[in-house]
Structure formats: structure tokens, C-alpha cells
Design a protein around this nucleic acid. Structure first.
Lengths: 211, 211
DNA sequence: TAGATTGTTAATCGATTAACAATC
DNA sequence: TAGATTGTTAATCGATTAACAATC
């Protein structure tokens, strides 16, 4: 078993291929080539083949890839062949939007709780989930064996929330608060900044002379 | 004037430095070293200096960087030294959450309109913004000289919306719909997928053996 | 001057791309 | 067999890192 280091960009592209294959599947297409996938997601055919080659041989030379099979393989690679239980901490604008966001469910992420410390928010319902007090976070994570915590609280309390999630037993955190979290190395962490995307755009506009 | 190609990762880090400097400014700190910035945002000191070196010499050897000056320079580089007018198209869960999200305002992005085709959503208000019908999108973009459009409609209508925004004159698009948009090359585009962050986490958990 | 920290170079590392042999 | 497309290699390209001369 080779232990090649996989570039993160490869994982992100695999996620894109998988999403594109879902669309293709719906149209009833059976076989697809690396060139078609590449065009569908906006990368090069070599990229598609190289990315897949990290994980095995999924195609047939001269023929292409079976859409269903390839989709199955990619979902396996991404570990989306199971349900992941997640909680959201912070029922503000962003947290509640994520709670209602369908995109997570579609990919196998199941929201089992949303938490806030604000009494005004506790008890509010989003779809079939009710906002619970932070006090109940630890117990819920343990009882429902939550693997992933999504942090949408202000930066000032993000570390505190992260500590609760970690001690309760989550394996991974998705942090939307603009701060650096201090975590034990066993925890997988990703920081997301929504505004940075706009800033890359403005920089690019600027360097093209479009003030 | 050298026309070095700037890595996108550099821009993203500059955005992080800038956010960190905001915090530092509030604490009243005057001078800061590349090492301190690096620790604050979780990168290497060499990275900080290299990233800044693309754009000029902002520090003093043996001393460090003046916090306010450096912040000013970075905001200039990112073109955040002005107000950017944006519209959101799609007043669903994600669109309305982004409409209320404070993080954009803080960085100089000013929301001047939110649009939807659903009569049930038209007229709803978020903070001081009212959801308008799509029919009014073209006129609003032109009148208010909107530079950036944020697309939060379903993938099926994203291209249609993008076309309206482009013909009305926006320079850049931030697309949250999971699809490939076909745009004239003058348009700056960034695609954002919220779910992909979770998928990178699950992949990483998997490759560490934590199923 | 001695100590500190920048700006910059050169070496390393990793990712992308092009090309082609393998093979359906 | 001829045509097509994969899997893989090798070449290119770009980004990160370490190290140090410049200089406050």
C-alpha cells in the first residue's frame, strides 16, 4: 500500500468531479471520458486522470469511465459512503443559514443539533431542528456520536466552543470564526472565510486595471 | 514596474494578515515583526516577508513593521481602500444569510440590493434591504454602478442570472451555485462550494484511519 | 558596536502539463 | 486492425523554505 501524499487540490477537484457526475447520472449517461469530465468542471483532462490515478485504475483504455462506478469510487475516496453527523454551534445569521442549507444533506452530512447561548435564540426551529442551549452541547455530541462540529460563533468565544466540542469527542472542526484555534493534533481543522473570496476578486480586478 | 505573477495563495494570506492586524491594532500595538504576524495567522515568517515583498518594502530592518502603515498597505493591495457595491441574486437560505452577514460590511463590501423571482420572497426585508424582483436587477446594477454580483440561486438558473449581471455591467461574480458558468473573459469569477470544506475534512479523517 | 529583523537569493519541494506507451 | 482513451512517465513550471547579507 503506497502512502503517497495527496495534494489538497486533488481532493477538492475530486469533489467537483463527483458533483458533476451526479448531474451526468441524472441524464442517464453510461460512459464518460476524462475529456468530458474535464470540460464539465473546467480543468484539463490530464488533471482528471492524474487525480484519479492516485487512488487506482477506474477506467477502461479506449473506452472511458463508467459513470456510476466512477461516482461510487470517488464517494468512497471522499468517505461520503456513510452518514456524517454534524452539529452547528452559533445560531446567528450564518449558523442558521447553514442549518437550512440543502447542500450539506445532499452530500451525506446530517445535522443533529444547533446550539446557542442566547436565550432569545434557544427554542427557535430550523426545519426540524430546534436551537438548544450550549449547556447541552457536550451531552448531545456524546449521545449522538457527532463527528464534525461547525463553528459559527463570534471569534471571541470560538476557542471556548472548540474546547467543548473537542472534549466531547468530535474528530473535526469547520471554523467560520476569523481566528486561530489551538487544538490537539488529532483534530482535523478547516478555517473558512467567506469574505476572502470577495477580496481575491477585488485584487484581481485591481491588477487588471479595473479599479 | 515588474509584472510578476502573484500566487493566489499569497492574496489569501494577505487577507489573513490584514484581519490579524485589525485585532492587533485594537490592542494598541505599534510595531510588529514578521514572526509575530506569522504566529498570529499560523504560517511561517518567511511566508509573511515573501508575500509582502511582491508589493514593496514595508518594514524596517532590525525593527519590524508599523502596524497601521502595514495594514494600510495591505488594504491598498487588496483594493479595499474603497467601497465595493455588491448585489445578491437569490434570497433563499444562503442568500439571505449572506445579506445579513456582517463580515462583508467590515471589509468594505456594501450590499445595495437582493433579488429573487419568487413572489413570496419579494418584499421581505433583511436589515435595511428589501428583496426586489429579478426584473429590477438590470436597472439597479446600472443605476448603482454595482461591481460585484453574488449568485445564490439554484444551478439551473445560475447561467441566466449571470448573463443578466454581466450585460448590466458587473466586473466580477461570486458564484455559490454548483455549476460551470460561461462568461466573457473580462469578468472575474470565483466559485464557492460550502460543502467541499466538509469533504476535505472527511477525506483527511479517512486517510488517518478515523472512519 | 551588538542585537535584531528585514528583504532577497538560491535550494528544495511539490504540482501541473504534455506526451506517449499500453490496451480496450 | 484502426481508432480511441486510459494510466504513467518525464519535463516543466511554480511555490515554499532556509539561509544570509543588508541594515536599522
Amino acid at each position: 500500500m503506497k502512502t503517497l501524499k495527496i495534494p489538497e487540490a486533488t481532493i477538492i477537484r475530486l469533489s467537483m468531479y463527483s458533483r458533476y457526475l451526479s448531474q451526468v447520472e441524472e441524464r442517464g449517461v453510461q460512459m464518460i471520458s476524462s475529456g468530458e469530465i474535464a470540460e464539465g468542471v473546467g480543468v484539463s483532462p490530464a488533471h482528471v486522470r492524474k487525480d484519479l490515478a492516485y487512488f487506482g485504475e477506474f477506467g477502461t483504455r479506449g473506452v472511458g469511465y463508467n459513470v456510476d462506478e466512477l461516482q461510487h469510487h470517488i464517494l468512497n475516496i471522499l468517505r461520503l459512503n456513510r452518514e456524517w453527523r454534524v452539529v452547528i454551534v452559533g445560531a446567528g445569521h450564518l449558523g442558521s443559514a447553514l442549518a437550512m442549507y440543502r447542500g450539506f444533506q445532499e452530500r451525506g452530512f446530517h445535522l443533529v443539533g444547533i446550539f446557542d447561548s442566547d436565550p432569545a435564540k434557544i427554542g427557535q426551529t430550523y426545519d426540524d431542528i430546534t436551537v438548544q442551549p450550549i449547556d447541552e452541547l457536550d451531552r448531545t455530541v456524546k449521545e449522538k456520536q457527532v463527528g464534525i462540529g461547525i463553528i459559527t460563533v463570534p471569534a471571541t468565544v470560538a476557542q471556548e466552543v472548540a474546547d467543548i466540542l473537542v472534549s466531547a469527542g468530535v474528530d473535526a472542526l469547520l471554523n467560520f470564526a476569523p481566528c486561530v484555534l489551538n487544538l490537539p493534533p488529532r483534530i482535523e481543522l478547516r478555517n473558512v472565510d467567506l469574505s476572502v473570496n470577495l477580496e481575491v476578486l477585488t485584487f484581481n480586478l485591481g491588477s487588471r486595471g479595473k479599479l
